[in-house]
Design a protein around this nucleic acid. Sequence first.
DNA 1: CAGCATCCGCGACGATACTG
DNA 2: CAGTATCGTCGCGGATGCTG
Lengths: 121, 121
Amino acid sequence: MTTSGFICGLDAALAVIGGKWKPLILYHLAHEARRYGDLRRAIGTVSDKMLIQQLKELEADGIVDRLDYKEIPPRVEYSLTAFGKTLAEALKPLCAWGTEHVAEVEKVVSRRGTSAAESAA
Amino acid sequence: MTTSGFICGLDAALAVIGGKWKPLILYHLAHEARRYGDLRRAIGTVSDKMLIQQLKELEADGIVDRLDYKEIPPRVEYSLTAFGKTLAEALKPLCAWGTEHVAEVEKVVSRRGTSAAESAA
DNA sequence: CAGCATCCGCGACGATACTG
DNA sequence: CAGTATCGTCGCGGATGCTG
């Protein structure tokens, strides 16, 4: 058994950033460390359950770092690890591609169910 | 509201390549045009329904091109469009990143359910 | 050979309530 | 503030069978 499941690295990468909220998390964390609630507010429409879950997976993947200040009231900061930053680097071209072709993509995707683009006037 | 659903191009890109079999399809099509059955065999464990569906979405997205030879028995070839090739280009670094860190990723992902790790050729 | 229709399970995703 | 636990929905993805 190859035990390697992944055929073209792309699979591996997608397994890491494929979660519904992961790209957004990565995006917001790329600039600077963020507190939990801060992050949630930044993303806007994510539930605690999902945010925590995705955050934990990213943490398990070694992409993000969790810093607990052990204070009362609680204060926790999330940030990208060095490893996570290499991922962010690798993501840049794709991000640029997406930005450049947002219009086309959005148009077609919205036809598939208004999943990502809701208020596309 | 931003009316743009997508915050960072990354979202847009993921909406395009996020399907379960899309990376594999892209991967196999990147090298050369492929016939339907050929493609299905190459991927191995994909059902007709899924392959067709993903292929159609990619086609609607302008990523892949469908060439029907109108013959009997039927012959259809799928290939990347010029647009699709720009996407493939943007994907390379991510692909490389995934390849480079397959080990780490695979380890963690397999803990989450052996979901993506199974289809080896 | 290429593709479509249908049924169905299961896991992702989400809303709500509760805790330290 | 930063989570956790539970329950319910929804649609993705898979298996099977049929058609041109």
